[in-house]
Simulated scan of single mutants.
Amino acid sequence: MHGPASPGWLLVALCAAAGAYCLLRMRSAVEEQRRAAGGEALMGFGMAVMAVPAAVAIPPRGVWIAYALVFGAAALRALWAARTSAHHLHHLVGAGAMAYMAAAMAASPGHHGHGGIPPLTGALLLYFAAYVLWSGVRLVPVAAVATAAGARPVGWSDRPELARVCRLSMAIAMLAMLLTL
């Protein structure tokens, strides 16, 4: 993506860490958590790759087209999964945003648009800004998970507050990436 190198590398690290935690969540005992974690891991690692500063490497147009196809397929999968879970609507918007950014980069790699913010970019910025605020508010009341006597301790892959932090981090990263588009 466009922008300075130092914040770009921080964005890469944040997204890669979120993707790695989502891989860990795929080991959860809760099936719905495992299912959601796979899509979130793809988003985290995909965002990390797309956030590599342009000063380091500008991928050829074909790579951006491949990203658009991968995230377009992820958006279709999220649309299918949204039949049974409203949470997948957020995955649909996220994957759609990634496909949109990749398509924009394929159309003009290495160039900023100077005609203002396109309506779709503006709508995505509003969505992710609202999601960041909503997610941040939801983190406040999360109590520490207590284990009852004799109960199995909660592992890293089953911590709801960490899953929320992961989603919040990726939404913040998505905002940053959309701003540099």
Rank of each mutant, 00 (worst) to 15 (best):
L126P: 02
A146V: 12
G136L: 14
V140N: 01
Y127K: 11
A129P: 01
Y131H: 10
Y131F: 12
A123M: 09
T121C: 03
P119G: 04
A144G: 13
A130E: 07
P119Y: 03
L133S: 10
A123C: 07
P118R: 03
T147P: 02
L126A: 15
W134Q: 08
G115Q: 04
I117T: 15
F128M: 11
G116I: 03
G136S: 13
G116D: 07
A123V: 09
Y127M: 09
A130Y: 09
V145W: 03
L133G: 13
G115S: 12
V132Q: 09
A129K: 02
L120K: 03
G136R: 10
G136N: 08
L139F: 06
L126M: 11
S135V: 01
T147Q: 15
Y131W: 10
L120W: 12
F128H: 13
L124A: 08
V140F: 04
A144N: 13
Y131S: 14
A130M: 11
A123W: 13
V142T: 12
V142G: 01
I117F: 04
V140P: 01
G115K: 00
A123S: 11
L124Q: 08
A123T: 07
L139N: 06
G115R: 02
G122I: 00
V132Y: 07
F128C: 06
P118F: 01
L133Y: 04
V145M: 10
G122L: 00
W134R: 08
L120R: 06
G116K: 08
L126H: 05
F128W: 15
L133R: 09
L133A: 15
L125P: 04
R138W: 03
A130L: 14
A146G: 11
T147H: 14
V145G: 08
G115C: 03
A123N: 04
W134C: 07
P118C: 03
L125Y: 02
V145C: 08
A146E: 15
W134S: 07
P141K: 11
V142W: 07
Y131R: 15
G116P: 09
P141C: 13
A130Q: 07
P118H: 03
W134L: 14
P118N: 02
R138M: 01
G115Y: 00
T147F: 02
A129H: 05
V132G: 05
V145Q: 15
I117D: 01
L125H: 02
G122S: 01
G122K: 00
V145R: 14
G116R: 07
S135L: 10
L139S: 08
V137Y: 12
A129V: 07
V137F: 11
A123K: 04
I117L: 14
P119R: 05
A130H: 06
R138Y: 02
